[in-house]
């Protein structure tokens, strides 16, 4: 992998230069939260950690028209615009790698493939806050899945080139880059030490697949199911959630049918309901169990790593505190103070 450095005052020209590839998107502050938005380099929040919605929205939008039907013919005109996404942290890039493996396994999803093809990924290093636990999931650094990756050392940034396309983008911005010296490397090592020492949230994911499997009949699920609101927030904000639904809609104006594809959630009641009204997962506890089994066991057997990247989105989003941290601690029979463990819900 090739490594360069970029002077701090060249960062904005560097990002503007990348606009030669496509629209520039990055983390922008919106009230007390952060979102990925199309903006000028000066508007980006370089200190931002997790956005409300993860970067999966660029690869499969929350809702789009997958197919159109008119005069007995189907048409697929999904053409994503070319984008440069700046500010993806290592956890986010790990999640996209899971996304990539998932959507190209057995059958390649053409919509994903096109979005991937149209996107330049520019990563950015970060310093964790109270809700980050990527250190525990082994996703605090990243070696693949980005085109360019910037590590912020204060007065300068280190630039990794991670793909042939990243290399190609140097035609646009190579003029801002300089070769690295020994001092840059030693500063990087010191930065890594400082960063790794900053993790405050500790969770032990060791042996989780077995523990989740053995806990299939644990009363924890029932307790959690009673508190869960089935709102689906956890699945929408999770960067590795992939499920979707397809629905046909009639467009009156154009007199054509649209097959719409949108994000869907396994915690919704209708998720496993079939024609005739039978529901394979009627109980909320069953649906939550599916989510956590799939994240912590399913991906483990399929890809050798859990589908949690420690971004902390479920930690800050769930209204009743059902998240990877509290569930893992409850299943390990460790102490947890999550809201759901204290709720006394009678009949749900």
């Amino acid at each position: 992998m090739r490594l360069f450095k970029l002077k701090r005052n060249n960062l904005f020209p560097f990002l503007r230069g990348l606009e030669g590839f496509g629209e520039l998107w990055g983390p922008v502050r919106k009230g007390r939260k952060v979102v990925y938005a199309r903006a000028k380099p000066e508007e980006f929040d370089l200190e931002a950690l997790r956005t409300i919605i993860p970067a999966k929205k660029f690869f499969l939008p929350p809702r789009f028209t997958a197919l159109k039907f008119r005069d007995n013919t189907w048409e697929d005109d999904y053409r994503p615009r070319r984008k440069v996404i700046f500010g993806l942290h290592p956890c986010e890039i790990h999640a996209l790698n899971i996304y990539h493996r998932f959507y190209t396994r057995l059958f390649t999803d053409p919509y994903y493939e096109r979005s991937k093809e149209a996107t330049l990924i520019v990563g950015l290093s970060c310093v964790p806050d109270d809700h980050c636990f990527c250190y525990a999931t082994g996703t605090s650094t990243v070696n693949e899945g980005f085109d360019l990756f910037l590590t912020d050392l204060g007065d300068r940034l280190l630039v990794w080139v991670g793909s042939p396309r990243g290399e190609e983008s140097l035609k646009l911005v190579g003029k801002f880059l300089e070769d690295v010296e020994q001092k840059d490397i030693s500063d990087y090592v010191a930065w890594r030490k400082r960063r790794d020492a900053a993790f405050k949230l500790k969770v032990d994911l060791d042996g989780m697949p077995e523990i989740v499997s053995f806990s299939y009949d644990s009363p924890v699920w029932e307790k959690m199911g009673r508190a869960c609101l089935s709102c689906g927030t956890c699945t929408m904000v999770c960067p590795t959630c992939t499920c979707f639904d397809l629905e046909d809609e009639y467009d009156l104006k154009r007199a054509e049918m649209h097959r719409e594809r949108f994000w869907y959630s396994c915690v919704f009641r209708e998720y496993s309901m079939v024609a005739g009204g039978h529901n394979f997962r009627e109980a909320r506890s069953e649906r939550l169990k599916l989510w956590y089994t799939h994240k912590l066991v399913g991906f483990m057997s399929e890809y050798g790593a859990p589908a949690c990247v420690g971004c902390g989105r479920c930690v800050v989003s769930c209204p009743v505190g059902i998240n990877v941290i509290s569930v893992v601690r409850a299943l390990r029979q460790e102490r947890t103070t999550a809201l759901w463990t204290k709720m006394e819900v009678k009949d749900a």
């Binding site: 057995l106 059958f107 397809l246 066991v297």
Partner: peptide, 13 residues
């Protein structure tokens, strides 16, 4: 979807 993508038929893993 029928292709292991939409997730609605998932059981365990």
């Amino acid at each position: 979807c029928g292709m292991g993508k939409c997730g609605q038929c998932v059981v365990g893993h």
